[in-house]
Design a protein around this nucleic acid. Structure first.
Length: 733
DNA sequence: TGTTGCTCCCTTTTT
DNA sequence: GGGAGCAACA
């Protein structure tokens, strides 16, 4: 028996051991949410509930995996057999069993993001929409807009109106394109990510038998990260609990766990109303709040609380901890993004003396922000693993290898055939399509003729035939494919194929746990499967979005600069700026013991072919100086402690006081819109005009070039740093 | 006719 | 670094 009282605090205990009925657990960051869920599962099992009637819906498969792993270790007996996964993977599993009606007994396949892009592109071409019109959004952007409209369940024009007025002239074309894309999927028996959810909802509404079976099976539903569910996901939870008209007492048991202060997925349709309206959807719901933070030291929590204290009313929150003391939060200003990378790498080297690699993470706003750091870590020989950004399965070489596998499963798969064929010199889309048609016609003579000029492609096709003839495991198949693909890779990526080769070897590892190749490929599209071997020996690099729900002893947040974090895309709409703030809150609350904030003073800009000065992130600017220990990079890459009176550390007035420029010139440097609530924020212009870097660094650089009309290039030979800046920013000698 | 090479542009976050 | 469009080459 487990001593729940002893292992949990009062609120956690209440949540873990409450009886039947709907429950909403509002769990602040680091308040022991996972612990509570794990104990909830264990408690249910002790009450005689069968694990197979518990369903745990989480945001990532990693989170589900981790919780189920921990559940298996709780108590002496452990707990296995709980169903867990993301909404999408759950939906995929259910729909594999109960096909949607319109498929009429046909099979269906799940589209990965490349399929979706290709499909939308094909639809656009066949409709002849916007041929050569540069103002028409790129395919990727179109895919994003269509998906956003579906996830928010709003008409496309409404989305455009709110988020992209410049595209309003294309509203009609985009709507037609959306319809064509829907027809495309229906004709071919394809489901995209959004379809999974809507089809599952339709099934629960219209297929009484399936719905009844699912409801009978899953008596206890736990939903994690409820603040990031969208409308259809909330309806799915409701429909799993009982028929649409069920009385409250006849519904299954739903426990939703979430924290509105950590809602960071509005961009893909997540709706905070879900958590606020939970009691309406589930009348009589009990609400339990977990507010004590066990994760972070007080200095870290103070910074996190301060970040949120500027938030819009409904998201404010104050976490408390009983832990006193702890290392101060460090705020490090570096000369450039490049030196930031080497300083962070050096700092990681230092942290590795105290922590295991798996206990250190670097977080950033967007995937590409870590490129320089990745190089710096490689130079130092520090192993890292990256989450977020370009997904593993989207890297070109992985797509190539997967194309072989998909062709193996389904020879009709045109896009995959095209992909494999294009690896061979002299074959482009046109020739590939012709050969594919010949191949399908079964005319061997014609095929032999077509392939005569493309000997190497024939070798690849023969290889696939051989593979088909042998019954290999998914891992065995992929390992052969990787070997077959290798010469192509060496040709196409002469400079970095060894790195890519390594990534491909991982795919074989990942596939090791699978029995069916098609399930593995679907899973790869749904969420990168875990390759467990690599984890512990590597430092984590992650987008903040992908860091959700995780924690580390030491967390370093980089690129806290204007236009980077918050993202410049978020500056025009107040609600998006607010979401960036919650993102910063999520990032800070990932840290247990040490938190470093890095602000580069200049950032390399390709277009200008030099580094451009950048202002500090408003989230840093707002921080009271007393909450951080400020450091700055001096000449020669040394860090230097900043004294409290010095400009910049949280000193929103110090800019204005130091400023040598007349106010109208400052205003001309106004880079981006300020946060919606001006009263709480120092004007961006102050920082933009005379931030710390501009006086100190630029004072010692050499002007090497004038760039008419009003810019100059300043070099700092000691750092290999070139900076382009407006002439009038130069300090007067 | 179809492939390849060149240039310009943009580059958020995810299932 | 990648996608899209355009021009030159086989």
């Amino acid at each position: 028996m487990i001593d729940f009282r002893q292992r949990l605090n009062d609120a956690q205990y209440e949540a873990a051991t409450c009886g039947d009925g709907p429950v909403l657990v509002v769990a602040g960051a680091g308040s022991g949410k996972t612990r509570t869920i794990v104990h909830r599962l264990a408690w249910l099992a002790e009450q005689g509930v069968s694990p197979s009637s518990m369903l745990l819906l989480t945001f990532t498969r990693k989170a589900a995996h981790e919780m189920l792993q921990r559940a298996a270790e709780v108590g002496d007996q452990g707990l296995t057999g709980v169903q867990g996964g993301t909404f999408h993977s759950f939906a995929f599993g259910v729909l594999r069993r109960w096909r949607p009606e319109w498929l009429e007994g046909r099979g269906f396949s799940l589209m990965d993001s490349a399929d979706i892009t290709a499909a939308v592109k094909e639809c656009r071409e066949s409709l002849g929409i916007a041929k050569g019109d540069r103002s028409f959004p790129k395919t990727q952007a179109v895919v994003g807009l269509l998906s956003k409209a579906r996830n928010k369940e709003q008409a496309l024009d409404v989305i455009l109106q709110r988020e992209a007025c410049q595209l309003l002239p294309h509203a009609e074309s985009l709507t037609r394109l959306g319809e064509a894309y829907a027809a495309y999927r229906r004709e071919r028996g394809l489901l995209d990510y959004d379809d999974l959810l809507f089809e599952l909802e339709a099934l629960l509404r219209h297929n009484d038998e399936a719905a009844a079976q699912l409801r009978a099976r899953f008596r206890h539903i736990l939903v994690d990260e409820y603040q990031d569910t969208n409308l259809v996901q909330a309806r799915i939870v409701r429909l799993l609990a009982g028929p649409p008209d069920a009385a409250p007492e006849d519904m299954g048991n739903v426990m939703a766990v979430g924290d509105e202060a950590q809602s960071i997925y509005a961009f893909r349709g997540a709706n905070v109303r879900n958590i606020l309206d939970f009691p309406k959807l589930f009348p009589g719901a009990r609400i339990i709040r977990l507010e004590e933070n066990y994760r972070s030291t007080k200095p870290i929590l103070d910074v996190a609380n301060s970040v949120l204290s500027h938030a819009a009313e409904s998201f404010r929150k104050h976490l408390f901890t009983r832990q006193e003391g702890g290392a101060p939060v460090r705020l490090v200003t570096t000369l450039s993004d490049k030196t930031q990378a080497s300083l962070v790498a050096a700092r990681i080297g230092e942290l590795l003396e105290r922590y295991r690699p798996g206990e250190i993470a670097v977080l950033f706003r967007a995937g590409f922000h870590s490129f320089q750091l990745e190089m710096a870590l490689n130079q130092r020989g520090i192993a890292f693993r990256k989450y977020g950004g370009l997904r593993y399965a989207e890297a070109a070489h992985v797509k190539d290898a997967i194309a072989y596998a998909r062709l193996l499963i389904n020879p009709l798969d045109m896009p995959s055939f095209e992909r494999v064929a294009a690896l061979h010199p002299g074959i482009g889309p046109r020739t590939a399509r012709k050969i594919h048609a010949t191949l399908l016609s079964g005319d061997t003579a014609a095929l032999r003729k077509a392939l005569a000029r493309h000997e190497s492609l024939r070798a690849d096709l023969d290889f696939l035939d051989t593979l088909r003839a042998h019954a290999l495991s998914p891992a065995g198949i992929l390992s052969s494919i990787v070997e077959q693909y290798r010469p192509h890779m060496e040709q196409v990526y002469p400079d970095d194929w060894p790195r890519r080769q390594q990534a491909l070897e991982e795919i074989v590892q990942m596939a090791a746990g699978y029995e069916e190749l098609d399930v593995f490929i679907a899973d790869l599209a749904l969420d990168t499967p875990e390759d467990e071997d690599v984890d512990e020996g590597a430092v984590t690099l992650s987008t903040i979005h992908s860091s959700k729900g995780l924690e580390w002893n030491a967390v370093l947040i980089i690129d806290l600069a204007e236009d980077r974090f918050p993202s410049r895309h978020s500056m025009s709409r107040p609600e998006e700026f607010e979401e960036e703030r919650r993102l910063m809150y999520v990032a800070c609350t990932r840290a247990r013991k040490e938190l470093d904030l890095y602000c580069p003073a200049t950032i390399f800009d390709k277009a200008e072919r030099g580094s451009m000065p950048v202002g500090q992130s408003p989230f840093v600017r707002e921080l009271p100086a007393s909450l951080v220990e400020a450091w700055s990079e001096g000449y020669g890459g040394m860090l230097r402690r900043k004294m409290s009176g010095e400009a910049f550390a949280g000193g929103r007035s110090s800019y204005a006081d130091d400023c040598q420029l007349p106010p109208e010139e400052r205003a001309s440097l106004y880079r981006s819109a300020p946060s919606p609530d001006r009263s709480r924020q120092a004007p961006t212009a102050d920082a933009g005009a005379c931030g710390y870097c501009r006086h100190r660094i630029f004072g010692r650089g050499k002007i090497v070039r004038r760039l008419p009309p009003d810019k100059v290039q300043v070099n700092f030979p000691g750092f290999g740093l070139k900076v382009i800046l407006a002439e009038y920013l130069l300090p007067e000698e």
